[in-house]
C-alpha cells in the first residue's frame, strides 16, 4: 500500500480508501463492515462524486488481489490458504492512534491474544517477510496476518485502538 492512499472512516458503513492513479483518475475502495468491498471511480468534473464499479465479496477480493497483485507475500500466502481450509489472511493498517506504535510484535502478544500470526509487515512499499518478535511496529505499517476469521477480526480491533 503506497503512502498516498487516503483513508476515511465511514461510521456505520466501514472504511473508504482512495488514491489517485498515475493517469490522474481517483480510485476508491469501500471496505464494508461485513467484508464486502466496493470499487469506485470518481467523476472527473465533480471530484466529490463517484460511481460504483463493482462490489466484491470477501473471497472475490482475494481472487482479484491475486490477479492484480505483484507482491510475493500475496502469492506465498495464497498458496498456504489453498492448503489449509478455514484460514484467512488480512491486511491491517496500523493507525497513528494505535497504542502499539513503537511496540515490538513480541510485546503485543498478538498470537496469544488472537491466535493470528503476523507473517509480514509492509512498510513504505517494502515487505518485511516473517518479522521476528523483536520487530518494532510503526504508524503507517500494514500488518499482514494469517489466522481464523474471528482471530483476524480481533487483531484488527486490537490494532485500530
Amino acid at each position: 500500500m503506497s503512502a498516498n492512499v487516503r483513508e476515511t472512516k465511514l461510521p456505520g458503513v466501514g472504511v473508504r480508501y482512495e488514491f489517485t492513479s498515475e493517469q490522474g483518475q481517483s480510485v476508491g475502495v469501500i471496505v464494508h463492515h461485513d467484508g464486502r468491498r466496493e470499487m469506485l471511480a470518481y467523476d472527473l468534473d465533480d471530484p466529490d462524486a463517484c460511481h460504483s464499479l463493482l462490489t466484491l465479496s470477501d473471497s472475490d477480493t482475494h481472487v482479484l488481489a491475486e490477479l492484480l497483485g505483484t507482491s510475493n507475500v500475496t502469492e506465498t500466502v495464497a498458496e498456504i490458504r489453498q492448503e489449509i481450509e478455514g484460514l484467512a489472511i488480512e491486511w491491517v493498517p496500523l493507525s497513528k492512534a494505535s497504542s502499539f506504535n513503537g511496540h515490538s510484535i513480541g510485546q503485543g502478544r498478538f498470537r496469544t491474544k488472537t491466535g493470528a500470526s503476523i507473517v509480514a509487515v509492509m512498510r513504505n512499499d517494502n515487505a518485511v517477510a516473517a518479522p521476528g518478535p523483536e520487530f518494532v511496529l510503526e504508524a503507517g505499517d500494514v500488518v499482514v496476518a494469517v489466522g481464523t476469521h474471528d482471530g483476524l477480526q480481533l487483531l484488527r480491533t486490537l490494532l485500530e485502538e
Binding site: 476515511t8 469501500i30 462524486a49
Partner: peptide, 12 residues
C-alpha cells in the same frame, strides 16, 4: 450509490 462520495463522511 453515494456511500463512496466524499461528502458522505461528514454526513455520517
Amino acid at each position: 450509490g453515494r456511500l463512496g462520495n466524499r461528502e458522505t463522511a461528514p454526513v455520517l
